[in-house]
Design a protein around this nucleic acid. Structure first.
Length: 174
DNA sequence: CCCTGATTCGC
DNA sequence: GCGAATCAGG
């Protein structure tokens, strides 16, 4: 896949929105996360200051094949302790809050739904539960997102539901 | 082991 | 310019 103007534009947009390279790669399709990161650098887009993933300042390359190279970044110096978290970390915070609310405000729920990570489409990976929750036509639709063992499509909880006859799960959906 | 981004260098 | 391999870290 080549970098058309369209794809580059989308890359810029998603990157600025704080999506991770792998998420962007997934959304663009046909490229690896490395490709995305490489492109980001080539475009001179701002890296991730220090939040979320890592980006622990300029790492000292051990790999010196030819010439010792000048530091690629002059800036990146502004080490400001931003409170704003990104990516997985930010998501985690939301999850915990939601989980608490769920348990606290729904004590009467018949069969308690396991804690859901409330993941959106872009957050699903090969090992997250892909059990859909809610009405796909409404905007609160999401996926369970819990860890699923052995790269199976559902977590252990939803795995059971998936193979039960519809009339057995009754309306305990989700 | 899962993930994150950063860098190098052969292509 | 591209991106796999590799590195460094959470």
């Amino acid at each position: 896949m080549n970098w058309t103007d369209e794809r580059v534009e989308k890359l810029k947009k998603l990157w600025s929105e704080g999506l991770s390279a792998s998420q962007i790669a997934a959304q663009l399709g046909g490229v690896s996360r490395n490709a995305v990161i490489g492109k980001v650098h080539r475009l001179n887009l701002p890296g991730r200051a220090k939040a979320g993933g890592t980006a622990t300042a300029a790492r000292t390359p051990k790999r010196t094949a030819s010439a010792p190279r000048a530091p690629a970044y002059t800036s990146r110096v502004a080490t400001r302790t931003v409170a704003r978290q990104q990516g997985a970390t930010m998501l985690k915070e939301e999850i915990e809050v939601d989980a608490v609310n769920e348990i606290t405000y729904r004590p009467a729920a018949n069969v308690v739904v396991p804690i859901s990570r409330r993941l959106g489409l872009t957050e699903l990976t090969e090992r997250t539960c892909k059990w859909p929750v809610g009405d796909p036509l409404k905007d609160d639709f999401h996926f369970c997102g819990n860890d699923s063992p052995d790269s199976s499509p559902y977590c252990t909880y939803h795995q059971r539901m998936a193979y039960q006859p519809v009339h057995d799960r009754r309306r305990n959906n989700g």
